[in-house]
């Protein structure tokens, strides 16, 4: 028994973080005057229905590549749809001259772009947040089944 409990404790420590749901941080530039953002507004921004931020700048929403688990999880959390299930919506928008959010290659790319571009907004895992950006909203993601 003396061996079993420490072993169980070790398994809990090492095994659970892999499965645990890590919050998603919605971020903008550290020098932005914005402090918070509602989930409804975030949804409108990522649908490109809200185009201008409260400071009068154009929103520049950023996504990760379609296959990125973080993108898929963000999409499910925000829209209850996977990225590929939103293609019909984006085809209609494209017909009206509106393009989907810009796609960045990695979380680091999101952080770099957000820090350098007024009005941009992106999402990364909470642990990736650093002093280049500020967190507007924390999301508990819906993992893909």
């Amino acid at each position: 028994m003396r061996v079993v409990y420490p072993l169980l404790f070790f398994l809990l420590l090492t095994g659970f973080p892999v499965c645990a749901v890590e919050p998603l941080a919605v971020v903008t530039a550290a020098n932005s005057p914005l402090e918070t953002l509602s989930l409804d507004n975030l949804k409108l921004i990522y649908q490109r229905k809200s185009q201008i931020d409260p400071e009068g700048n154009r929103w520049v929403p950023l996504n990760l590549p379609v296959a990125d688990p973080l993108r898929r999880s963000f999409s499910l959390t925000l829209f209850s749809l996977l990225p590929e299930e939103q293609e019909d919506y984006w085809n209609v928008q494209y017909f009206n001259g509106i393009t989907p959010p810009k796609v960045m290659a990695s979380e680091e790319a999101v952080l770099r772009f957000v820090a350098a571009t007024t009005g941009s907004i992106g999402y990364v895992r909470k642990q990736k947040v650093d002093n280049r950006v500020k967190v507007l909203l924390l999301l508990t993601p819906n993992p893909e089944k």
């Binding site: 293609e87 085809n91 790319a109 770099r112 772009f113 571009t117």
Partner: peptide, 16 residues
């Protein structure tokens, strides 16, 4: 560069 971080510069059917 920031441009090199951009992953959607390639042509994709249905988005021009």
């Amino acid at each position: 560069s920031l441009a090199a971080d951009d992953a959607d510069s390639a042509y994709r059917l249905g988005s021009g």
